[in-house]
């Protein structure tokens, strides 16, 4: 369980470039759920996630991991980082070792695990992240963009963190690559019961893969709740420059024209399902 209490962070304090990136954010991330952190470019998402594993120290406020303030013992920050796995934005650049296998082992090795345990975790993480067995002995620099991304995600999953944070894990991938990486994250969440936090600005992805959604605007938390609760407040989302998934807009338009759509109006599959039921009713 990860809790934020009144987190504030300012870039370049006391210089002409001063900017308050995160402003009084309090938030609780639930275990076993995927929370989507949505916000416009420059809304403070990336700054916030770098505070979750102690890469950045908040100017004020507290971050509690399982009830303990992570800054109470800065010397033990490494342990916090093993428990809160962070996949940074465009994580491909973190690959460095001779083989993909060795690179995924980097985290577990730093944890001081035994050889056999490392091998087990590498295999597990590779499966979750969708890194094919045959790629493990290749050089990470020979992989394609999507494969590199998956290898980098596996490198963090291999630490088996109880909280997994991913900053734009699907940015710049093609639709197939996006779905495969996000479904792998869903799989990790469900089978380990981990707290998962995904940063994104794609409402479509959030609608499909997240349980809860938190919306950041200008460094402030402006909405939080389940996916349905947040996407219901369409006008407010539009006001902060985000909007709702395209399919939700279409569903609303259809409802105005007399269709009755119930249940999930946030994903294409959900709308298709209720539309075929409703459409069948109209034609009859």
């Amino acid at each position: 369980m990860l809790q934020l209490e009144n987190i504030t962070y300012t870039y370049g304090a006391k210089t002409p470039f001063e900017k308050r990136a995160v402003d009084g954010v309090s938030l609780t991330f639930e275990d076993g759920k995927i929370t989507g952190l949505i916000g416009h470019t420059g809304s403070g998402k990336s700054t916030l996630v770098q505070m979750l594993n102690g890469l950045i120290k908040p100017d004020s406020g507290h971050i509690y991991l399982d009830g303990r303030d992570i800054w109470s013992e800065p010397k033990k920050m490494r342990d916090v980082r093993f428990r809160v796995g962070l996949v940074m934005q465009y994580p491909e650049y973190q690959l460095f070792d001779e083989t993909v296998r060795a690179d995924i082992s980097f985290g577990p090795k730093n944890m001081g695990l035994t050889e056999s345990e490392i091998a087990e975790r590498v295999a597990e993480a590779a499966t979750f992240a969708g890194v094919d067995e045959s790629l493990l002995d290749k050089s990470p620099f020979d992989l394609s963009g999507g494969q590199k991304r998956r290898a980098a995600v596996a490198g963090v999953m291999a630490m088996r963190p109880s909280t997994l944070v991913l900053d734009e894990p699907a940015a710049g991938l093609d639709p197939a690559g996006r779905d495969s990486i996000l479904s792998g994250i869903r799989g990790y969440c469900e089978s380990t019961g981990a707290t998962v936090i995904i940063v994104s600005h794609s409402m479509e992805d959030m609608a499909v893969w997240c349980d809860n959604v938190a919306v950041l605007a200008d460094g402030k938390l402006c909405m939080t709740g389940t996916r349905e609760e947040v996407f219901m407040r369409r006008d407010e989302l539009v006001a902060v420059g985000l909007g709702v998934p395209m399919i939700t807009d279409i569903a609303y338009a259809l409802m105005r024209r007399g269709f009755t759509l119930g249940g999930d109006i946030y994903t294409v599959a959900g709308v298709a399902k209720s539309l075929s039921a409703a459409g069948g009713g109209r034609h009859a």
Binding site: L55, R81, Q94, F106, M159
Partner: peptide, 12 residues
């Protein structure tokens, strides 16, 4: 950026 990413994986 790279240092942060490796620190996140426990580099010291």
């Amino acid at each position: 950026k790279i240092m942060s990413a490796q620190k996140a994986r426990g580099a010291d």
